[in-house]
């Protein structure tokens, strides 16, 4: 990421959300992004995931510059290489746990999508929840399904936005163990936005954002 800025125009006033952000993420590296509310953390991972257009600068994913790609091209990169975990889980309400997870595999036209989805759910302790709808799952279970969905394609990069923000302490610990174990086992990189210092301390590097600029990178 090189000199990336993000501005929003509201009522003819330009608001700088992010200013000249530059950093690199190494292979298998885990990074937490911390900062106060409204500092620009979530905006930053949205840009990395190609879900927002930058106002200036360049973003590269491996050797490809994604900042000047079309929406469909970015969708293709995201589909194959990036997994996203949200604070509010966002499972598709009328899909079962199994269908939510196999969706990613199916759109990538992978064989044995159902089998692979079952394997990952089983690995995350949800073998008895395959055919349950999200409304029939607890918050912790929903987030495990959401993580299963984001990692089932074995992405090289996982973006997580407050993955334990809606969970109690017991579930927080379970989910963080599950996420970090998986990253370690599968050699993926992680960029995680969090307010939870304990969770942030589990990452190799911590980037602090303040008023849209990187104030600390260690």
């Amino acid at each position: 990421m090189s000199n990336v800025s993000l501005n929003y125009n509201i009522d003819n006033n330009s608001i700088n959300i992010l200013k000249n952000i530059s950093f690199e993420v190494d292979y298998k590296e885990t990074i937490s992004i911390v900062g106060e509310s409204g500092s620009g953390k979530t905006s930053l991972i949205m840009l990395i995931g190609g879900l927002e257009k930058i106002s200036a600068g360049n973003i590269f994913f491996k050797d490809s510059e994604i900042s000047n790609m079309t929406e469909d091209e970015i969708s293709e990169i995201r589909r194959k290489n990036i997994g996203i975990v949200f604070q509010s889980f966002y499972l598709i309400p009328n899909y079962t746990a199994l269908e939510n997870v196999s969706l990613s595999l199916e759109i990538n036209k992978l064989d044995n999508a159902t089998k692979k989805a079952k394997e990952i759910l089983d690995r995350f302790g949800l073998s008895n929840r395959f055919n349950n709808l999200p409304s029939q799952l607890s918050g912790g279970e929903q987030q495990r399904v959401a993580i299963a969905r984001s990692v089932v394609m074995k992405p090289e990069l996982i973006l997580a936005d407050e993955p334990t923000g809606n969970l109690d302490s017991e579930n927080t610990e379970n989910i963080s163990n599950l996420l970090f174990n998986y990253i370690k086992d599968e050699n993926a990189s992680l960029i995680m936005v969090t307010h939870d210092n304990n969770l942030a301390n589990l990452t190799k590097r911590k980037i602090t954002i303040k008023d849209g600029v990187i104030s600390e990178n260690q």
Partner: peptide
């Protein structure tokens, strides 16, 4: 939100 999720996991608008 379901459509937003579909977009997030890489299904394009079309």
């Amino acid at each position: 939100s379901s459509i937003a999720v579909q977009k997030a996991i890489g299904i394009n608008s079309g």
